[in-house]
């Protein structure tokens, strides 16, 4: 059970090499080995989406992924969005702040990472497309209305910026 394996991966642009137990989840690896606590764990069975991260650009549940499966991958977590040094928020993060798209904030990193993937693929989504993309993320506080507003706001700002 404890035959450890070596994995090499990139997280938020930084390369890591670690020995891990094969059973270690990627969520636990990111949170407790790399000390990136923004990837939250809400259910550990793949329903709530709080632990959503990007693996090679695609959203994934860190709780249902083993660390060893991420060997060789490039991972983005919520910590990778804010600008280093200045601390300036990513437009998606800023939109969630401005549109009151969060309350307790525990599910928020998962929503932001899902939104990052969505807007990367579809910079100008309709409401239905936003709902389709966010349908796998649970929020118990907001009732989703302000989250929908946040994603709309983020999309419009990103589009305006790229048009300029």
């Amino acid at each position: 059970m404890s035959t450890r394996q070596t994995i090499r991966l990139t997280v938020n642009g930084k390369a890591y090499e670690r020995e891990v137990e094969p059973r270690l989840t990627l969520a636990d690896f990111i949170r407790h080995e790399l000390h990136l606590g923004g990837t939250h764990v809400g259910c550990e069975h793949g329903i709530c989406g709080a632990c959503t991260i990007l693996i090679d650009g695609s959203s994934a549940r860190a709780c249902l992924t083993l660390a060893v499966q991420a060997d060789g991958a490039s991972i983005t977590t919520v910590e990778g969005l804010r600008k280093r040094e200045t601390g300036q928020l990513h437009p998606i993060q800023q939109a969630f702040v401005d549109a009151h798209g969060l309350q307790c904030g525990f599910c928020t990193p998962g929503f932001i990472m899902t939104t990052l993937e969505l807007l990367g693929e579809n910079p100008n989504p309709t409401d239905d497309e936003i709902k389709e993309a966010l349908g796998g993320n649970l929020c118990r506080c907001t009732g989703y209305q302000s989250i929908l507003d946040s994603v709309r706001l983020a999309a419009s700002r990103i589009n305006t910026a790229s048009a300029a």
Binding site: G37, G38, H40, V78, E79, G87, V97, T108
Partner: peptide
């Protein structure tokens, strides 16, 4: 909110 959207708030498991 800035800390919450950044994932830097110290929830207990952090």
């Amino acid at each position: 909110d800035p800390a919450l959207v950044s994932g830097t708030v110290e929830f207990i498991d952090n």
